[in-house]
Design a protein around this nucleic acid. Sequence first.
DNA 1: AATGTGACATACC
DNA 2: TGGTATGCCACAT
Length: 120
Amino acid sequence: MTEKSSVRSGKSDSYSFFCRVYDVTCMIPHGRITSYGAIARYLGTAGAARMVGWALNTSHSSERFIPAHRVVNRNGMLTGKHHFGNSSTMQQLLENEGFTINNDTVLEFRERFWDPSLEL
DNA sequence: AATGTGACATACC
DNA sequence: TGGTATGCCACAT
């Protein structure tokens, strides 16, 4: 077997990259947040941070509830808040979990940062 | 099959 | 010091 096709398809060729993103996102502990890059790195596709964001964009396709509000960029900024339907929804959800949002940025981002590659 | 895209990240000017 | 430019990888069309 060629490694190339193996890598391309991965062990779980049936399971899309997106599904893994959803899974990891759902595994984010309550009161914690992570970044797109961290998830991408955990999935073994560092640099595909954009893919993670895009996956969350199609998270509506998933039957599960995806706490995408816990996923922000590396600056802790709520870049995708607009995709929550209401711009304030993401902020409200985070504040509900005890986060402090200032200027669309999570102040406790570094303290509450959860790295799946590190914690998992 | 090829091209475009996207809620990022990093580098450079 | 901040904006611009490019890379990056997997999905969608």
